[in-house]
Design a protein around this nucleic acid. Structure first.
Length: 278
DNA sequence: CCTTGAACCTGCGGGC
DNA sequence: TGCCCGCAGGTTCAAG
């Protein structure tokens, strides 16, 4: 569910709410997520001041003064919800963090594809889930030359490669289709055979789509919410995602958006604007 | 090494 | 109304 813009939005909202505070009480309601929850390590975070938050790929990292970091992935359906602490827990609230001022943070995840772990901060980047990640798309390291090197031997469709977190992180199923439309590249085009011009267009297209989505608080398809409960708004600006059969936007080609399946995932493109080039 | 497909799990909407 | 099917923002693992 949440791709980079959604995770970034949540992380930014959590920052002022949590920085400098402690969780005075932590309760684990359910342990069997995608990976088993480290109950004891989670409970040991109680009363440790939170020194900061950051996002890496689709992970939220919450740093504690005890030199531990809480690593969190929202999977497809995970939400972090901040409330005043009075309401009863909801179905699928798996972990609940309570602050001394009554503020409460609930990790709610119906499908349980999410992950939580507690890591020694000094060994954070050696963590199995983090160590092999590719570059951040909004960093200076994400360049056409980097992409060219990464894709040099990849015969698979560019959309699959773009969603591979070992290459570039944070791009999921929505933003892959959107970025490829913005760069006018066919999603099924072999990654390795993309020319320099295509890669030079793709890098800024990915960045622009992600930045525009962050500015709108992410995209809400069904259950994503910002940490304050507000919806995201970027779904109103989709050019192609979920638009099968509708006219291609912002051009005069007169074509309609096609839905195909790539790697088992719904993929959207304009057959006139996004052609396979050799 | 690569690529593909299935698996993990719950909820919802559509068709019958 | 109820049941069954397909589908959903992600990631990992086995098999070819």
């Amino acid at each position: 569910m949440p791709e980079l813009p959604e995770v970034e939005t949540i992380c930014r909202a959590l920052q002022p709410t949590l920085a400098g505070k402690c969780f005075t009480h932590i309760s684990v309601q359910r342990e069997n997520l995608r990976l088993p929850l480290p109950r004891q390590a989670l409970l040991a975070l109680a009363d440790q001041p939170i020194t900061g938050l950051e996002r890496r790929a689709k992970y939220i990292l919450i740093h504690f003064a005890s030199q531990h970091t809480l690593l969190l992935h929202l999977g497809m359906s995970g939400r972090m919800v901040v409330d005043a602490g009075a309401a009863p827990l909801e179905k699928h609230d798996h972990v609940v963090f309570c602050c001394s001022d009554g503020t409460r943070l609930r990790f709610n995840d119906p499908r349980r594809f999410g992950v939580m772990d507690v890591v020694a901060t000094t060994a954070l980047w050696q963590h199995p889930l983090l160590k092999a990640l590719g570059v951040e798309p909004l960093s200076a390291a994400f360049t056409p030359a980097y992409l060219a090197e990464k894709l040099r031997t990849r015969k698979s469709p560019i959309k699959i490669a773009l969603m591979d977190q070992h290459c570039v992180v944070g791009v999921g199923n929505i933003y892959a289709s959107e970025a490829l439309f913005a760069a006018r590249i066919h999603p099924g085009h072999s990654a390795a055979s993309l020319g320099a011009n295509a890669l030079a267009a793709l890098v800024p297209a990915v960045q622009a789509v992600l930045e525009r989505a962050i500015a709108k608080g992410g995209s809400t398809l069904k259950d994503y919410r910002q940490a304050n409960g507000e919806l995201g708004y970027f779904q109103h600006e989709f050019a192609v995602y979920g638009k099968a059969g509708q006219p291609c936007p912002g051009c005069t080609c007169g074509q309609t958006i096609q839905k195909t399946l790539l790697g088992g995932r719904a993929t959207f493109h304009c057959p006139a604007q996004q052609q396979i080039k050799s």
